[in-house]
């Protein structure tokens, strides 16, 4: 168990003013079985209208609207989390997690993933968690971590074809492989000690429990990760989504700081 202080900061700079800006932010971690958020504060600027909501996956959302012209938009969330409170999360009834068993456009396997999947053969009794761990280990040793070669739109299959990518790609490939084995698996966005940006990993269902695996680092998630949101893939967990009126180029800066305080 750890006590972690976290700060998530995202800012957008527009090179020309924009207006009528609508945004949905999924950037607030919530308490659960594995982590407890002991305090948290979130600031959004500019913020003519702000509301809080919860999406269908139970993620905390801040959504809002700024009508007036602005050339800067920022969010920062700071707080404290107690992590590693449990080795897994208890899942709901099995018939209610079915949606995580099916491929999405991001995770749909193609020839490259199918080829990769041929490397594995499991006994009939192999637990889902062990299968997932085998995928993770193999993926970690084959797939190359490289920034700038994939984009947020890149699918699991495209990343697999490239053979390299970032945490989002590792996670989508994991989801694809698990779902091919009929294992419900979900995408997680969060923060990790020592990472300067947001991070992604997966949770895998096994006998009524969700286990968290971080394929980018080849580790079973313990107490260094803070979970922000879950979903079927990246699209369900997009941290910042927005539309605005104006012809402007935007530059996004994200900084994440997670450090142990107790």
């Amino acid at each position: 168990m750890k006590v972690l202080h976290f700060a998530y900061n995202m800012s957008l700079k527009f090179d020309a003013p924009v207006e009528k800006h609508r945004f949905t932010l999924k950037c607030k971690p919530r308490s659960g079985e594995r982590q407890e958020i002991t305090w948290i504060t979130a600031n959004v600027y500019p913020n003519e209208f702000l509301s809080n909501a919860e999406d269908s996956f139970g993620n905390s959302c801040i959504y809002g609207y700024t009508e007036r012209k602005h050339d800067h938009f920022s969010v920062n969330v700071i707080g404290t989390a107690r992590t590693g409170l449990a080795p897994w999360e208890t899942a709901g009834e099995t018939h209610r997690i079915g949606m995580f068993r099916y491929q999405t456009p991001y995770t749909m396997p193609g020839p490259h993933i199918k080829k990769f999947a041929e490397r594995f053969s499991f006994g009939e009794d192999t637990p889902s968690f062990e299968k997932a761990r085998a995928f993770m280990t193999e993926l970690y040793s084959t797939f190359e971590y490289a920034q700038g070669v994939t984009r947020i739109q890149t699918t699991a299959e495209e990343a697999m074809a490239l053979g390299k990518g970032v945490c989002q790609d590792y996670s989508h490939i994991m989801l694809s492989l698990c779902r091919m084995q009929n294992i419900p698996a979900r995408y997680v966005v969060g923060m990790l000690m020592g990472e300067g940006a947001s991070h992604a990993w997966v949770e895998v269902y096994d006998k009524g429990r969700w286990f968290a695996l971080d394929p980018t680092n080849n580790l079973v998630v313990d107490d260094q990760h803070i979970r922000i949101s879950i979903g079927r893939d990246y699209a369900d967990c997009t941290i910042n989504q927005g539309v605005f009126v104006g012809e402007a180029n935007q530059t996004q800066t994200i900084s994440v700081l997670v450090r142990e305080i107790g």
Partner: peptide
């Protein structure tokens, strides 16, 4: 289950609404 989740009409965004 797959007639629900793999069909085009199901929207996860409607869960719990």
């Amino acid at each position: 289950e797959e007639f629900i989740y793999a069909g085009s009409g199901y929207l996860a965004q409607c869960e719990g609404v």
